[in-house]
Design a protein around this nucleic acid. Structure first.
Lengths: 212, 212
DNA sequence: GCGTAACCCTACGTACGAGTAGGTATGCTC
DNA sequence: GAGCATACCTACTCGTACGTAGGGTTACGC
């Protein structure tokens, strides 16, 4: 019997991406544990053993998702924040790139970063990514301080960086949950909160994006 | 055979608390899915059917934990931030109460709030708690604004509140992961970041707790 | 001291889902 | 067109852990 096969045979690299796409969607909807390999395979239009053959165990598959999405994100941000700009300008560009990314990948963000938080096997991977972000932010602050000839203990910087990154992630969640919201506006609000602080906002002082 | 029973029979209310204590510990160590009802029962010094008889399914048990810990926390904070104080004072007291609570309940916090984030069945419960916190913070900001005769769109306030709460939660995680860290100091740092913002911190302007 | 209601147990049924065994078809190289 | 590697499938095993059936024991009222 020579029925036309519903789906052609495809090279490995292509199928792997399809699987990852499906996995991201399913993980984001169901959560890590709620997701079944059967469903992921089905959504990818392939059978389960193929997934195991290409991406390994469920855990490895999830890490692969996390890694792909995380790398894309870090690249998007790093590309935007040139190191030879003043601190506020750098912060602004970084934030804009970040929220732009999240806005365009709501599924990926909300699923993966929310999932990976508590689960023992993934904490490491996620922590690494956060650490890189925090390092970037702390480095930025440190850089700005040195320019002005001042200096601050490392822990001090780290904690402020933590707060900034946490606030940003929180707004990213907000953005992921509000499909009608605009990334650019969200970034502006974040910039206001982070750069000026509640004290100045309450006094009516606000920050606006540069005209350029 | 009349062996002295290893553990006396206890009234329901007491056993329920013991079970919840055990559940919080186990959930926090293993994560929601990693935790088994058998282990929780064992740690509570009771057998599994008792847990089911008193607290219902695993899901209900987790929600019960979340609820208890959350209620305790909200009460601790609400009790500290009197509504008739200036905004900075209220914020400071709220933050101090919050970090004090987390410092004293590192297990409870890190486990429950980290766990509940991504999992579909618990998102609602957690969202409610966050919503209450955000409402409190937004109300505080709004209050401060009215006092000065100014006004701001509700979304605007909500977003700033989101950022503040997110930053605070992030530092709470940091605190939970650094047993040597001091809640009071952490609260001070948070106050600096939130009230003054990165811009002023970089210029060397800092905030210090009132002498009282 | 006897009934009844509460507390509490051991031992099981069962479902779900990760991971695999073993085999088939297709296309590519020579 | 023979050989071979790669793509792909159906149909299974099996562990784990939720939830329960069914029965024993202690206290308390009367």
């Amino acid at each position: 019997m020579v029925t036309t096969p519903a789906f052609r045979r495809l090279p490995r690299a292509v199928r792997e991406q399809q699987m990852l796409d499906a996995a991201v969607r399913v993980f984001s909807r169901r959560g890590y544990h709620g997701a079944s390999m059967d469903e992921i395979a089905e959504k990818a239009g392939i059978s389960k053993p193929m997934v195991y053959a290409y991406l390994g165990s469920k855990e490895e598959l999830f890490v692969a998702c996390l890694h792909r999405e995380g790398t894309r994100m870090v690249e998007a941000i790093a590309g935007a924040a040139a190191p030879d700009l003043p601190a506020d300008e750098r912060l602004w560009r970084g934030l804009r790139a970040f929220f732009g990314f999240v806005g365009a990948h709501r599924d990926g963000w909300s699923v993966l970063y929310r999932q990976a938080r508590g689960e023992p096997p993934f904490v490491d991977e996620l922590t690494m990514m956060r650490a890189r972000m925090i390092e970037v932010v702390a480095g930025m602050l440190d850089n700005a301080l040195r320019t002005e000839g001042r200096e601050v203990a490392e822990t001090e910087l780290e904690v402020v960086a933590y707060a900034l990154v946490g606030a940003t992630e929180s707004l990213a969640d907000w953005l992921a949950d509000h499909p009608e919201a605009d990334p650019e506006t969200t970034a502006t609000r974040m910039m206001n909160a982070a750069w000026l602080g509640a004290g100045q906002l309450l006094r009516g002082i606000t920050w606006h994006p540069p005209a350029a």
